[in-house]
Computed example of a mutant assay.
Amino acid sequence: MKSKKDLRLILVLSVVVHLVSSVPEVSPERCTIQEEYAVCILRPSSDKPSDINGTLYFAQKLVPGECKADFISIQVYIDNVPLNDGNHKHGLHIHEFGDVSNGCDSMGPYYNPRSATHGGPWNSPNDRYVGDLGNVRQNPKTGRISVRIVDYMARLTGPESIIGRGIVLHANEDDLGVNKSDPESLKTGNAGARLACCVIARSPPIPDDKFTLYK
């Protein structure tokens, strides 16, 4: 036969279990923030004809179990990047404008709404542009670029949304602004000419199998 003390403990535990189980879980259906997706169909710059082509997929999902946006995932698939230019790494950046009326040059400067200094993608917000995605590496035998980028600053929603802006693949490796005595390093990372570009456009949900580390 249970004592009064045991019965009181069982009652308290029952109340605790009831309270915990009655707390509503955060789910995408109850959250006002929605997952967002975008695509960008890469084409060569009109003033630098080539066979470069590709697609970039963007996904801004929710942090599991929380009502807030996770880091953005950007899947990069680019084919026919030149093999004979001596560069196997190429700067990839978000540019301010989604304008290709005069080739990739119409896309303006790197996207920098916070007036920061150019840097690497994992620099602090004061030491990089929102558009600083760093470098992508091509396969030295095929010229293909296939990689997933995870970025903590770029967003598909909000006042600094990258929807409608441009993506540019550059000819050279971005030095990530490490040369503090070189104004061009602090501005563009000496990433060089604009080989190809595209406009970031909102899209329907993109299947998870489009996002892989390498393929």
Rank of each mutant, 00 (worst) to 15 (best):
residue 8 R to S: 09
residue 83 L to T: 06
residue 97 F to K: 04
residue 153 M to R: 13
residue 34 Q to H: 12
residue 13 L to S: 14
residue 176 L to D: 03
residue 1 M to Y: 12
residue 170 H to D: 03
residue 52 I to S: 01
residue 53 N to T: 05
residue 214 Y to E: 05
residue 185 S to H: 12
residue 151 D to K: 01
residue 192 G to V: 04
residue 60 Q to R: 00
residue 120 G to H: 12
residue 48 K to V: 13
residue 20 V to N: 02
residue 12 V to F: 15
residue 160 E to T: 11
residue 26 V to T: 09
residue 135 N to T: 04
residue 36 E to Q: 14
residue 171 A to F: 12
residue 83 L to H: 04
residue 171 A to H: 09
residue 163 I to W: 00
residue 148 R to W: 06
residue 117 T to D: 10
residue 48 K to L: 15
residue 6 D to M: 15
residue 162 I to G: 02
residue 180 K to P: 00
residue 79 D to C: 02
residue 161 S to W: 05
residue 162 I to P: 01
residue 118 H to L: 14
residue 15 V to K: 01
residue 80 N to E: 13
residue 103 G to Q: 01
residue 105 D to T: 13
residue 72 I to A: 03
residue 79 D to P: 01
residue 79 D to Y: 12
residue 78 I to P: 00
residue 81 V to K: 04
residue 120 G to V: 03
residue 130 V to A: 10
residue 151 D to M: 04
residue 125 P to G: 08
residue 115 S to G: 10
residue 194 R to S: 09
residue 89 K to Q: 14
residue 185 S to E: 05
residue 199 V to N: 01
residue 103 G to M: 03
residue 98 G to D: 05
residue 86 G to N: 08
residue 87 N to W: 14
residue 168 V to C: 03
residue 62 L to N: 02
residue 73 S to Y: 12
residue 193 A to Y: 10
residue 104 C to R: 06
residue 197 C to I: 03
residue 99 D to P: 01
residue 5 K to S: 08
residue 204 P to M: 09
residue 64 P to H: 06
residue 5 K to C: 06
residue 177 G to M: 10
residue 54 G to A: 04
residue 177 G to A: 11
residue 175 D to S: 09
residue 70 D to C: 08
residue 62 L to A: 06
residue 39 V to C: 00
residue 28 P to Q: 03
residue 5 K to N: 03
residue 151 D to Q: 05
residue 138 Q to K: 14
residue 171 A to E: 13
residue 199 V to L: 02
residue 11 L to H: 10
residue 90 H to R: 12
residue 122 W to A: 12
residue 2 K to C: 08
residue 5 K to P: 00
residue 174 D to C: 13
residue 215 K to H: 14
residue 112 N to G: 08
residue 104 C to A: 13
residue 125 P to D: 09
residue 117 T to P: 05
residue 102 N to L: 11
residue 103 G to D: 02
residue 38 A to I: 02
residue 113 P to G: 12
residue 193 A to H: 07
residue 1 M to L: 09
residue 187 K to Y: 14
residue 63 V to R: 06
residue 188 T to Q: 05
residue 39 V to N: 00
residue 95 H to A: 08
residue 8 R to K: 14
residue 98 G to L: 07
residue 83 L to D: 04
residue 68 K to S: 15
residue 87 N to L: 03
residue 123 N to E: 10
residue 101 S to V: 01
residue 135 N to E: 07
residue 120 G to E: 04
residue 74 I to L: 14
residue 126 N to T: 15
residue 38 A to Q: 02
residue 53 N to Q: 09
residue 105 D to G: 08
residue 82 P to W: 06
residue 96 E to N: 09
residue 35 E to N: 05
residue 166 G to E: 02
residue 111 Y to T: 11
residue 70 D to P: 06
residue 110 Y to E: 06
residue 108 G to F: 06
residue 112 N to Q: 07
residue 153 M to I: 11
residue 176 L to Y: 07
residue 174 D to S: 14
residue 62 L to I: 07
residue 71 F to Q: 11
residue 138 Q to H: 07
residue 140 P to K: 00
residue 10 I to V: 11
residue 4 K to E: 12
residue 75 Q to G: 07
residue 87 N to A: 11
